[in-house]
Every structure is written in structure tokens, then in C-alpha cells.
């Protein structure tokens, strides 16, 4: 990890009127990394990517890519950064190949090089069979693949992808993921992916940043984030036993350190605790005469990490502004009840 930083932002802020879309973002990404920017819809991911490309001016703070200031030298930045927008579009009355050549020419490449590169890239994304069909006839997945070829036309150092996995079938997804891997490993390009689809991001990203309400609330390798949560006393255990006895549930609730138990229809219990209770739980199961059918320590996967961080951010918000959001929900709920009576 001795590679130099290629993307750096310092206190990057963007306000739309009263709304702060991105709030003091400090982000550094090293050369050759695949970085996942995760967050719910409206967290400010797209705004961040637009600021990195110099398409939107930040209200405060700076961003730079490969030493070029994103606001002051947008042309330099745009010539080394490939951008794949979330709903990528092509000129419907031009063929896929013509669309690629057009992009190449906008980047100042000469016609011959464009044609050669377009053919290579179409081959690489597996679109040669449809290269000379009008782009208007393409399906969503084909457009996405052509979009990747389009991004690669300028031979970028950095690739920014906004929700690249949106609306692609599972097979297409697998291809896309291996392609992204290849771009990073074989070509050594830096890739920034913004997404809310955790599973895919987990498969390809070296590091992730969790982005909620314009703030980066966690950033690091997936394993590190998981460990960090555990160290903070957040353990989560899935446990299932047969037969499903009420006694077991009660005894588990009485264990020291157990904060909450939720049981679903199949009898699967999700136990949240402040320490590792696996040993105590298995002993309890045996004492009550049940058979342990499932025991799973959660926390390793991104879904869990994301959920936890999201919860944590929500809690701190609640404390900060007197439970504004949940208060609203609660009053809504009460209203409903009142009208129901």
C-alpha cells in the first residue's frame, strides 16, 4: 500500500440552498485501489462524483485527482478520469461503434486510433456482435457494457462508476464484476464505485467508505470495519435450536451482556450482545435439552457492517437533534392509532 494518493478531497462541501448534500468530506484513495462509496439513496454520492469531475462546483473545500484541482483544471482532470453515469445513454441513431469513436474524438484522438481502440474495447466487453447496430436498439445491460467501453476509450487512469450494477441481470453482474477486477488488477487503474448494492461492492472493493447524509461515517477495509464494530461491543449472533422452547428464549435473555433478542417465525433468534456469548449460549442450549441447528456469528459481511453503521449514525443523530427523525415517525404512528380508535 505504498502507492501514492491519486484522489484527495479536503473538507469538500456542497450545499443546495438549505440542504447540505455533502458535508466536509475528507477522502483519500491510493493509486490502483478499488474504492466503494456506499450509502443510501440521496446520501450525496452522485454529488461527490460530480464534484470530483468538476461538473459541479463545491461550496467549500477542494478535490484533486492526480495532482490536478478538480474545480480549477477540469479539462486535465476529465482527460484522465473516465466517468460512467448511473443511467448511461448513447445517441440512438448512431451505432455502438460510432458512439465510441465520437467519444474518442472528443478526447482528441485521431480517427484511426479511435477505430482501432473501439474494436478492441468492443471485443473486450463482449459487444462485437452488436457493434454495428444502432444504439437505440440496445438493452440496458448492453448499454452498460458499451458504457464501460466508452469510459475506456480515453484510456483513463481513474474510473468513476455511479451505480454500475443497477438493473443488470445476475449473469451480466458476474461479468461486470470480473471486468472491473480485471481493470484494476491487469491495467492498474484506480476505480471509485458508488453504490447501494452491498453484496457486489463487497466482492470487488479493496476499501469502502460508508456515506450517510453527506458524511463519511466509516472508511476502511471491510474486515477492519467488522473488527472495529466488534471492539465497540457490538456482537450479533444467529441461533436456532430444536425444539423451539420458550425456556431457552428466556434463559438467553437473562445472560449477562445480552441486549436484545429477536425471534422470527422459523424460530431463528438474532441475539445482540456486548460480548462474545457463543460459549454460554451453546451451554444453555444443551442444558435445556435442545439440539443446536444453527449458530452464526455475524459481523463479517458488509450488509451487517453497513446496517450497524447506519444504525449508529441514526442514534447519534437522534441524540444530537432531540430525536427529530424518530420523533416524527412516532407522532405519525400515534396519529394513525388515534384515528383508528
Amino acid at each position: 500500500m505504498a502507492e501514492p494518493f491519486i484522489i484527495e478531497t479536503k473538507g469538500l462541501t456542497k450545499c443546495y440552498g438549505e440542504v447540505t448534500a455533502v458535508d466536509g468530506l475528507d477522502l483519500t484513495i491510493r493509486q490502483g485501489e478499488v474504492f466503494g462509496l456506499l450509502g443510501p439513496n440521496g446520501a450525496g454520492k452522485t454529488t461527490t462524483t460530480l464534484m470530483l469531475l468538476g461538473l459541479t462546483e463545491p461550496t467549500e473545500g477542494t478535490a484533486s485527482i492526480d495532482g490536478f484541482d478538480c474545480t480549477r483544471q477540469p479539462l486535465k482532470v476529465k482527460s484522465i478520469v473516465g466517468y460512467l453515469p448511473d443511467s448511461v445513454g448513447f445517441y440512438p441513431d448512431m451505432t455502438g461503434r460510432q458512439n465510441l469513436i465520437f467519444t474518442g474524438q472528443l478526447n482528441g484522438l485521431d480517427r484511426e486510433l479511435c477505430e482501432q481502440r473501439a474494436s478492441e474495447l468492443l471485443e473486450r466487453v463482449g459487444m462485437t456482435y452488436a457493434a454495428d447496430r444502432k444504439a437505440g436498439t440496445y438493452s440496458r445491460g448492453m448499454k452498460q457494457r458499451l458504457g464501460i467501453a466508452d469510459v475506456l476509450m480515453k484510456d483513463p487512469k481513474v474510473i468513476i462508476m455511479d451505480e454500475p450494477t443497477l438493473g443488470i441481470d445476475p449473469e451480466g453482474m458476474r461479468e461486470l464484476i470480473s471486468l472491473i477486477r480485471e481493470l484494476s488488477v491487469r491495467d492498474g487503474r484506480t476505480i471509485l464505485i458508488s453504490s447501494h448494492q452491498l453484496y457486489q461492492v463487497q466482492q470487488i472493493c479493496d476499501r469502502v467508505g460508508i456515506f450517510v447524509a453527506g458524511q463519511l461515517i466509516a472508511c476502511g477495509r471491510i474486515e477492519d470495519l467488522g473488527r472495529q464494530l466488534e471492539n465497540e461491543g457490538n456482537w450479533s449472533l444467529d441461533l436456532q435450536a430444536e425444539p423451539n422452547k420458550k425456556e431457552l428464549y428466556e434463559k438467553l435473555s437473562d445472560l449477562a451482556g445480552v441486549k436484545r433478542i429477536e425471534q422470527d417465525a422459523t424460530g431463528l433468534m438474532r441475539i445482540e450482545s456486548s460480548r462474545d456469548i457463543r460459549r454460554d449460549a451453546t451451554t444453555l442450549v444443551m442444558e435445556t435439552g435442545c439440539i443446536l441447528t444453527q449458530l452464526h456469528q455475524r459481523g463479517g459481511d458488509l450488509d451487517e457492517i453497513y446496517h450497524r453503521y447506519f444504525e449508529k449514525a441514526g442514534e447519534s443523530d437522534e441524540r444530537a437533534d432531540g430525536g427529530k427523525a424518530s420523533g416524527k415517525l412516532r407522532s405519525l404512528f400515534h396519529k394513525k392509532q388515534a384515528s383508528g380508535q
Partner: peptide, 12 residues
């Protein structure tokens, strides 16, 4: 069409 942001992301 979604071509505007793709166009604007080119070095022009």
C-alpha cells in the same frame, strides 16, 4: 437520453 453527462465528462 442520458448523453449530456457523458458528454460533459469528456475533456471539453
Amino acid at each position: 437520453q442520458g448523453t449530456l453527462n457523458r458528454l460533459a465528462a469528456q475533456p471539453i
